[in-house]
Nucleic acid binder design. Structure first.
Length: 112
DNA sequence: AAGGTGACCGGCC
DNA sequence: TGGCCGGCCACCT
């Protein structure tokens, strides 16, 4: 929906797109980069809207525990897990194994 | 315009 | 990381 610029949402998308292959990050981390670490919920909200965007690897974004909290919102139920495993990330019981190991610190693009 | 919601996080028990 | 509570901010009805 092109209701508006959605600058906030778009920033989340931009950061999410920076996530390299086989890497993952948390909502809070992204929110922190955006400047509002307390608004991590908004990040998750933005991801919800990102469903329409293929450029946003939402499956690489999980909560700080490494839990696939957002797998509900994906097409099936294990789709998110499948994608992560496809990238070499182990997922057991909706939780990422070695989360801190695959963790990637989100960051804004060099310059836009 | 106001209220409710949400894929969260951090702190405390 | 087990569970509950408060906060925080934008989106939706």
């Amino acid at each position: 929906m092109e209701t508006s610029d959605d600058n906030f949402f778009e920033r989340v998308y931009v950061v999410a797109r920076q996530i390299p292959f086989g890497k993952i990050t948390s909502y809070g981390a992204i929110a922190k980069v955006l400047g509002s670490a307390r608004s991590a919920r908004m990040v998750g909200w933005a991801m919800n809207a990102s469903h329409n965007l293929e450029d946003v690897p939402a499956h690489r974004v999980v909560n700080r525990k490494g839990l696939l909290t957002g797998k509900h919102h994906f097409d099936g139920t294990n789709l998110m897990q499948q994608l992560l495993e496809s990238e070499g990330i182990k997922v057991v019981d909706n939780q990422i194994v070695d989360f801190d190991k695959h963790f990637w610190e989100p960051k804004l693009p060099s310059k836009e």
